[in-house]
């Protein structure tokens, strides 16, 4: 990715997430409380750090964006009100808003269904993983 492209993307991430990464005091409570920590290559505190440093490409290629549970524990417990969950969602959007980058495709769905699965799960997965 070009330098100016990444700068622009960083500005977009900050704008649509509404998060100011400079508020972070690097305590690591977000990563301490994250229930999906082990499934992430970049962890919540690194999302804040790397957005601050403008290194968005690493985050866009990370598997963390697909494994965030949107449980808002990081956002609720952050002592500085940084709201890492919003950054993760903004990076995920930056990926799926690109053409052909949908993470979940309709044809995958039938195999994933079981009798009791509420459609809430399907609707939310499409909202989160596809455009």
């Amino acid at each position: 990715m070009q330098k100016n492209q990444e700068l622009e993307l960083t500005a977009t991430i900050k704008r649509i997430s509404g998060v100011n990464p400079r508020l972070c005091m690097k305590c690591g409570k977000c990563s301490a409380t994250c229930p999906a920590f082990d499934e992430m290559d970049y962890h919540p505190h690194q999302f804040v750090d790397l957005v601050d440093k403008g290194q968005i490409e690493k985050l866009m290629n990370s598997k963390g964006i697909w494994n965030c549970l949107s449980c808002f524990a990081c956002l609720e417990r952050c002592p500085r009100m940084v709201e890492p969950a919003k950054l993760i969602e903004a990076v995920r959007l930056a990926v799926i808003r690109q053409q052909g980058q949908n993470h979940l495709k309709p044809e995958q769905i039938p195999d994933l269904l079981d009798e009791n699965l509420p459609q809430q799960a399907i609707t939310s997965a499409f909202r989160k993983y596809a455009k």
Partner: peptide, 18 residues
């Protein structure tokens, strides 16, 4: 790092931290 959650379970305190 910081502690994120403490879960009292079976006589222990399960501390989850970064």
């Amino acid at each position: 790092g910081m502690v994120g959650k403490v879960v009292p379970e079976n006589g222990k305190l399960k501390v989850q931290a970064s």
